[in-house]
């Protein structure tokens, strides 16, 4: 079983996030990390190979610092990493991202399963897994909160507001997992030491046969024209309950015609 897990290096949501002068996400001047939601995909991949056999390759695209996301995945137990690193990639939209990832997955050779998280914690679009499936011509089996892989077959539970669905497909397939699927492990000391010796390949767009003019900000099919920090909310009234807190709350709602 060969599994490729696509991961993203994102600005830490706990810190100040912002934009570059070209209105792309600032990824350089901020603390970054492996997108929290991708940890579930790495964990799920590890569980699958640990229950059987196979190798987990973790794939990312992004600036130099994105190597951090690979490192964390290797520390968790992934076997090898691939970093698509090319200046032309900066500012890529989801469409271009899916192109680069799809070509990189193809270059990884025989792949049974492409795993991703349910969204990145910065862009939060949740569309790249579907785009990847579209580009690779593979079954799209996404938003899995339970996953079973056996006998060349994949089955998931997919929940939405109205339904709970079972979705099945043959391998190879593109599968995205939610944060309900498992509890990602913390890297062990042994894992941290072992990660130092694991192979990481760096590929350029040329290595993938992707024309640089197809990616990056200039190629984006959709782009941000204007950004505005949300004005801080005006400080509201906070009262301490001394017996009438609930009534005060109801009165506030009545005054605002909300109740």
């Amino acid at each position: 079983m060969n599994i490729v897990v696509c991961v993203k290096y994102v600005p830490d949501a706990q810190g100040e996030r912002g934009f570059e002068s070209d209105r792309t996400t600032d990824r350089e001047g901020v603390d970054g990390l492996l997108s929290e939601l991708d940890e579930y995909a790495v964990e799920e991949a590890l569980k699958i190979v640990e229950a059987g056999e196979g190798e987990v390759t973790v794939l990312t695209m992004g600036p130099e610092d994105a190597a951090t996301a690979i490192k964390k995945s290797l520390q968790m137990g992934a076997h090898q990493g691939v970093h698509v690193l090319d200046e032309a990639i900066a500012g890529s939209d989801a469409v271009a991202t899916s192109l680069v990832l799809a070509e990189a997955v193809k270059k990884c050779g025989e792949v049974d399963l492409v795993l991703t998280g349910l969204a990145s914690t910065d862009g939060v679009m949740s569309v790249v897994p579907a785009m990847l499936a579209e580009r690779l011509g593979l079954p799209q089996v996404t938003f899995a909160s339970e996953l079973t892989v056996e006998g060349g077959h994949v089955r998931i539970r997919r929940d939405n507001e109205s339904f709970s669905e079972t979705v099945e497909a043959d391998l190879p397939a593109v599968v995205s997992v939610t944060d309900q699927i498992n509890e990602p492990r913390y890297p062990s000391f042994k894992g941290i030491m072992a990660a130092k010796k694991k192979p990481v390949q760096t590929w350029s767009l040329a290595d993938l046969g992707v024309d640089p003019s197809q990616v990056g900000l200039d190629a984006a099919w959709a782009r941000v024209e204007e950004t505005q920090a949300r004005p801080p909310r005006e400080a509201g009234e906070v009262v301490t309950d001394e017996g009438q807190g609930g009534e005060a709350l109801a009165d506030f709602l009545a005054a605002r015609r909300l109740a």
Partner: peptide, 13 residues
């Protein structure tokens, strides 16, 4: 960014 920015975007293609 968790509601901290409002952006205007446009589709060009």
């Amino acid at each position: 960014f968790a509601g901290s920015y409002t952006v205007a975007a446009q589709v060009g293609t």
